[in-house]
Design a protein around this nucleic acid. Structure first.
Lengths: 171, 171
DNA sequence: GCTAAACCTTTGACATTTGAAATATTGCTC
DNA sequence: GAGCAATATTTCAAATGTCAAAGGTTTAGC
């Protein structure tokens, strides 16, 4: 079919490749960004209304939840992708609320280790269960196949980005 | 092949569907979030180093760039997904730098319209070009087919989320 | 015309965010 | 063991972010 029209289709592909194809990455990025913002805002609102917690606090507690012995603040910083200075304030507020405990180990007094308190652990468990349900609910209209595919393909994007970061080592 | 093993494969699918499948949405969300954070941080770093601008400022200017007559602050708030109060400060700072102009139209004195200045327009054009290149660079390892597929599928996620927001009208 | 509802922006209190400088501690080297 | 680089956290200034309340303006209803 294409050959009988002597290359018109090919021409279109080329034109499209030069015009629209160029900005595909930009388009994808804008959509990723707006979708992530949308979900974040909804989760934030629900966390606030139902638990009086913020999203960064939830994130931080999630990391501590899976490490029963606690984490050093620097490690928390890496895992939550939050700057050091930021972790300080976050942990400080959580400690005030009695959800997190700060300990300086004997071996190295530079270090501060944060742990969930019993209360923190219980509250987090409730938040985590709700959180998981919210996501299922928000994505309810998307086929499981698509969700699995997205997880895989976004993984490729993440790898590519990690390989092209400017002037920073990657893990 | 599966049939000659009398349903073992099916069983695995069922088991996996009950165990792992349950948290697929959560897994996808965590990956979306971390990937978006990663890209945001890189873009922010480059915007800062090469243009002395911030990401929210860039976002806001991008909206103004495509509306030559300017936008009301409330409209800017919707498009950038930033709260009203935040837009006020953002525009204020950009005005101080001479990139944006604030005007109150004669018809309705409740309204403030923000426009790019000539300087703002020129600077934005340079930033936008660089920005587009950065994204191509960061996603360079991802096949165009996958990028197009992601754009489409993330669109489905966005629609689903919009259909399940709690207590808010959607556009 | 007066009043009340609706609309748009700003303000204020507080939390989060980054980047850079400051602080404290440890480990290494000579 | 004195000095110095490396490590880990805190502090600081400036920007961004939310939410709720307050401020003007406009529009409708009467």
């Amino acid at each position: 079919m294409a050959e009988s029209e002597s290359g018109i289709v090919d021409l279109e592909i080329i034109v499209q490749g030069a015009q629209e194809g160029k900005k595909q990455e930009l388009r994808l990025w804008l959509r990723m960004l707006s979708t992530t913002k949308l979900i974040s805002q909804e989760i934030r609102r629900r966390l606030r209304n139902e638990f009086g917690a913020t999203l960064p606090q939830f994130d931080l507690m999630a990391q501590l939840h899976r490490e029963h012995d606690g984490l050093r603040l620097g490690e928390l910083s890496k895992r939550t992708m939050v700057t050091n200075g930021n972790v300080t304030g976050l942990v400080e507020r959580l400690e005030t609320d009695g959800l997190v405990l700060r300990v300086t180990p004997d071996g190295d007094r530079r270090v501060t280790v944060a742990k969930l308190t019993k209360k923190g652990d219980e509250i987090f468990a409730a938040m985590a269960a709700a959180h998981e349900g919210w996501l299922r609910e928000l994505m309810a209209d998307v086929e499981p196949t698509i969700i699995a595919g997205l997880w895989k393909d976004i993984g490729e994007v993440k790898s590519s980005v990690n390989n092209h970061l400017s002037g920073v080592a990657f893990d």
